[in-house]
Structure formats: structure tokens, C-alpha cells
Amino acid sequence: MLFVELAVTGLVYGCMYAMMAVGLTLVYGLLRILHIAHAGVFALGAYVAVVVANATGSLALGFALALVVSAIAGVAIYRFAYQPLLGHPPFVPMIVSIGLFIVMQEGFRMVFGAYGIAFDDNPWYTSTVAIAGINLNYVEIAMVISSVVLLVGFGLFASLTRAGIGWRATVTDPQMATSFGVDPVRVRYVIFLFGSALAGIAGALVGLLNNYVEPTMGGLVSYKALAIIVLGGLGNVRGTLLASLVLGVVESYGTIYLADVFDRDAIGFLFLIVVLMVRPQGLLGRG
């Protein structure tokens, strides 16, 4: 029974990682930038959700605003931090991204305090439901449902709409796509808008899951998301989804069976390093 329970917890975490990592891998696929400041967007989503929910008493409003604000923040990051640097080697925007992430994290600390905020009213946190003998609380279920809905939605967008096809064309061959009338700048905006909205929702859900929002909460999740996109093969969306779920499960088992040697965070990266040494191109290869 423990065996199954660990797998389920692992998959719940995997869904959360997937929501973070898909945004990162989209940005990487398009611009070849390691978007570390994505972690700041994640924390921003959580803060907006908790502050709005506590002020108005409406969790739904908190989540809606978290989605909107983090999407706008993502576009602003692209416009003001990355766009001026597109001609430079990838090292340069990566450093900027690290700088921006630190600034955001310190900004949260200054504005909201170092100790974190809890939700005043978090009914989902305490209500659990037993599915096939395994207890899950509502937040965990919401995490799985929202990641599936959002990612399937993105899949449909990419395969059915003009903008989605334009995006795929731009990733494959920017010049060719441009000459066929796809506006590459608009594609970038769409990617940052969507990826950041996902990160913001993930942040808000993690805030609910821990019933706690703190300035540094983005850090570890985003470092792991970086590990995941490398595992999946940088820029490869399918590989990223697979790697997210695999990492969630590996961590979940690792925390039980390797507890005396490594902590949870080390296990993920250890797994990453081992996989990369065997398959330097990632699990499914470069996208």
C-alpha cells in the first residue's frame, strides 16, 4: 500500500512540476534562454492569490487575479529583460535572469515580510477524500485536474489554432515562419503569457497545498523545473511532461528509501546527473 501511495504523491508533485517546467521549456525552445526568473513569477502568483483571497474572502477571485497578474508579469519580463539582450550569447540573458529572480525574491521579502503568509480560510486544505483507499486532499486533486486541463488546453491550442501552428512553425524555423507571415514577436508574447500564467497558478496551488506562502518558495521548485527541462531534452514539451512525472515519483520513493544518505532535493538532481551521463541529450532528445 505504501508503494502505491508513494507513486500517487509522486504524481501529484509531478503535475506541479509539469506546470512550472512547461513554461520554462517553451521559453527555451523559442529563445534558448534559461528562464530562471520563472521562479519569481511562481511566487508572485502565490502572493497575489493569498493576499487577494485574504482581503476579499474569495479564493476564486484570488486565483483569477493570480493568473492575470503573473501572465502580465511574464510578458513584462520578456519585453524589458530579455528582448534587449536577444543578440547576446545565451550566458548573458541567463545571468540577467538570475539577477531578476534575486531581485523579485528580495522584493517579496521587503513588501510582504520574511515570515510568509497563510490563507485565512483554506477549506480545501483540510477536506480529504479517499480514492481506492488512498487519502488525497482537495488541493492535491485540484493540482492534478488543473494541470491536466491547462496542458491539454495548450496541446489543443498548438495543434488546432492558427496562433498555435504559428508558434510551432517559429520554433522549427523562425525565418521561414516569418516569411510566411507569422509575427515572431507576437509568438514570444503568447508563449510568455501562457507559460507565466501556468507558473502563477502552480504557485497559487502550492501556496494552498502548504497553506503557506513565503518569499523563497519559488527557488527549489524552479531549480527542479530547470533540472526537468534538461532531463526532458531542452525545448522538448513531451519530454518535459514525462520528466516531470518521473521526477515526482523518483523523489517520492527516494525520500523514503534514500533518507539516510540524501535529502529530497539532492535526489532529484542526482537522478538528473545520472540520466545525463547516460543520455546527454535528455530522456527524449532535444525538441
Binding site: F262, D263, L270, I273
Partner: peptide
């Protein structure tokens, strides 16, 4: 691994070291 892969891998080494020492 090169470039971006290497950046993330070396970052991982840092976490593996910390995670090992802490335990």
C-alpha cells in the same frame, strides 16, 4: 554536456553536495 545543460548540471552538483552533507 555543454552550455545550458552544463549550467543546470553544475547547479545540481551544488544541491547534491548540500543534500549529502545535511544527512
Amino acid at each position: 554536456v555543454r552550455h545550458d545543460f552544463l549550467a543546470v548540471t553544475t547547479m545540481g552538483i551544488g544541491f547534491v553536495f548540500l543534500g549529502f552533507v545535511r544527512k
